[in-house]
Simulated assay, not measured.
Amino acid sequence: MELSPIWLLVLATFVPAAMLSCAMLYPVRRGAERLGLLDRPGHRKVHTQPTPLGGGIGIWFAVVTTFALGTLAVGVCRMTPSLAAYLPPSIAESLDAIWARTGELWGVLAAATALAVLGLIDDRRGLSPWIRLAVQILVAAAVVFGLGFSLTAFIPVPWLTKCLSVLWIVALINSFNMLDNMDALSGGVAAIVAAMLSVVMLSTPDPESGQPQMLVAAMLLVVSGSLVGFLWHNRPPARIFMGDSGSYLVGFLVAVATLLATYAGYQEQARPHAVFAPLCVMAVPLYDMTTVLWIRIREGRSPFEGDKSHFSHRLVDLGLSKVQAVLTIHLLTLTCGLAAVLLSFVTLPGALLVAGIVLCMLTLIVILESTGWRKDEP
C-alpha cells in the first residue's frame, strides 16, 4: 500500500527525531555531572534531588541530525531519478523547491545552535539576564533582517513588521523558558504547539503552488518529535531537565517556523484570519509569561527574578497536584491548538466564534485563579 505524502512526511521527520532524541539523552544523563550540568534543589525549585540539565543537547542533536539526513536524502533523490520515482508525485515534484531552501534552513539551524550554546553556558555557569536578552535580540534580528523572515501581519510599514518579528521571536523564546518549571510541562506544551502548527501548515496551501507547506510542517514535526523523545526522560519524576539550552532552542524554532509560514491560503479559499493561528496556539504560554511578569512588577521585583508565581505554581496553590497542574496546562494548550487548526477552515464569522471560545477559556482561568488570589489577601 502506498503511503500518502503526509504520512511519509511524519515517518521521515517526527519518528526519527523522537528516536534520536530519546537515544541521545541516555549518555547525556550519565555524563551530565561531569559536564557541570546538574540542577540542585533550591529555594525556588520544586524538585528535591539533583537532576541533569542537558535535555537541550538531546533535542538539538535530534533536530540537526534529522535535518542533515533529510538534506542528504533530498540531494541524493535529485541526482538519482530512479530513487525519486518511488516518492509520491507531489513530493518528487517539490524536490527542487525544497533543495533551493536548504541554505535558508541551515541558516536557521545555525542561529538556533547559537541560542542553544547560549543556554548551555547559562545552565553551566549562569549569565546575566541582560546578556541573555541581548544575545536573543541579536540572533532574532540576524534572522529577521539577514534572512528576510517576518510576520504575516498585513502592516504596510516594513520596519515595524520587522521589529514586531524580532519581538515575537524573543517573546516565544522566553515564554517556553519561563514555562520550564515542572516535569514535562514546557516540553509537553512545546510538543503540542509544534504538532498543532504542523497541522495548520498541512491544511493551509501555499498561495503560489496551492500545495501544503511541507517544509515548514517538516520543521515543526521534527521539533515535536524531538520533544516527545525528550519527554520519555522528563516524565515525572524527571530524570533530566530541558534547561535553558532546550527552551531557547525550541522557542526559537517554533517562532521562526511561524514566520516562514503562510496563513492566508490562496484565491477563493483565502482565510486571512488564519494569521492569528500562532497567537491562538501560543495563548497559554503567553498567558503564563504575561501574568508572571505582571506579578513580579506589581510586587516591585525584577521581572528577571525567578520565583513560584507561574501558572503551574498557581494551579498547585489552588489544590491541584503537580501532575494535575501539568496535565491541565497540556489540555488547555491542546484546546487552543485545535482552535488554531479550525481557523484554517472557517470563514470570518466562524473565526470570530473560535476567538471567542479561546478568550472565554482564558477568562475562565483568570476567574478560577482569582479565588486563590482572594484567599491570599490579608
Rank of each mutant, 00 (worst) to 15 (best):
V281M: 03
F311E: 00
H310T: 11
D307P: 03
P303T: 11
K308C: 11
P285D: 07
V316W: 00
K308H: 10
V292E: 04
M282I: 04
A283R: 02
R298A: 15
R298T: 15
V281T: 05
V292G: 05
K308R: 15
T290S: 10
H310A: 09
M282F: 10
H310E: 06
F311M: 13
I297A: 11
Y287C: 08
R314I: 12
Y287E: 04
G300K: 05
S321P: 04
G319S: 04
S312Y: 01
V292F: 06
S312I: 08
A283Y: 05
L286N: 00
G306W: 05
S309L: 13
K308Q: 13
S302R: 06
E299G: 14
R314N: 07
A283F: 08
W294C: 11
I295T: 13
D307W: 02
R314E: 08
T290L: 12
L293I: 15
P285E: 08
L293C: 11
H310Q: 09
T290N: 00
P285F: 09
G300M: 09
L320V: 02
E305C: 10
S309Y: 02
L293F: 15
V281F: 07
V284P: 03
E299F: 02
P303W: 13
L293K: 01
W294F: 15
D288P: 06
T290A: 14
M282E: 00
P303Q: 08
S309V: 06
F304H: 11
L320S: 05
G319E: 05
H313P: 05
F311W: 06
R296F: 13
P285G: 07
L320D: 03
S321C: 02
I295C: 09
D307Q: 07
D307V: 07
V281L: 04
L293S: 08
I295A: 14
R301T: 04
P285L: 09
D317M: 10
S309K: 03
F311N: 01
R301D: 09
I295Y: 10
M282A: 11
K308S: 12
V316D: 00
D307M: 04
P303I: 14
